[in-house]
Amino acid sequence: MSDPVVVCEGLTHVYLRGTPFESVALRGVDLVVRRGECLGLVGPTGSGKSTLVQHFNGLLRPTEGRVWVDGVEIRPGTALVREVRRKVGLLFQYPEHQLFEATVFDDVAFGPRNLGLDPEEVQERVRESLQWVGLDPDRFGPRSPFSLSGGEMRRVAIAGVLAMRPQVLVLDEPTAGLDPEGRREILSRVRELHRKARLTVVLISHSMDDVARLCQRVVVLHRGQVFLDAPVREAFAQADRLRSIGLDVPRATDVLLRLKAAGLPVRCDRLTVEEVCEEIVRVLQGNQRWSSSEA
């Protein structure tokens, strides 16, 4: 469960080096993604999250530092990089903008066909991937991707990455710009992929609620550096630190923080609505017992 899949060591990335537009996106980032975990990657806009994950599959090369994927160091060498791209599936922000084929089936088949698989294997992978994202292959396969709703298009794009059968799935704000229904659908699919298909998931998100619900560990980036790297409960227990860089804690946790500030002896390392309800009930009942024994 715990061997590393992606390792970054002293990773520094400078954009447009040697021009008047030079900017440092990452400074000496050390990071380990462990096999089978779901890692939340959060940070204010411009903190380097997207730059970081593009190193995971060789789309960007480190200016300094080193990156290993599945025990192999990524170096500029085409064969190796292609192998890495197969292992790490990367879904960009607004991935529905990358759809281009005439039918959903062909679009999802783009990846497997690039791998040079035979038609039966391609067909099988497309059907499987569409099912993983909750789209019926027979109904959606022949349709044009441009006729779908935003949430459906995004699920097709995710299926397109899944069809590569990656070991690691990196999602860059997969729920941005979707309605609540679309968000729920995507998140529950991702959770299923993580739990049932045993995918390692790296989730970039601005929604602390989503991170709290899905992830076991959180890495916070700030100005290109690792600001915090901790299990999800420990991370969100540091509300003040997170707020100091413009981030927040899950809304449910916020309720507990306010109750505590109002004098209720609640513990604040609860993250989901259910946990928070239990905690409030526990404390209230404890109080009742206390007051009744007093009487």
């Binding site: 593009q54 783009f110 990455v161 590569m164």
Partner: peptide, 19 residues
């Protein structure tokens, strides 16, 4: 920027642009 992003997205799906 958009071109770069789309190129990367397709390369992440195994697109081979320069052979």
């Amino acid at each position: 920027e958009e071109t770069e992003k789309i190129m990367k997205a397709q390369m992440a799906r195994g697109a081979d642009l320069d052979t």
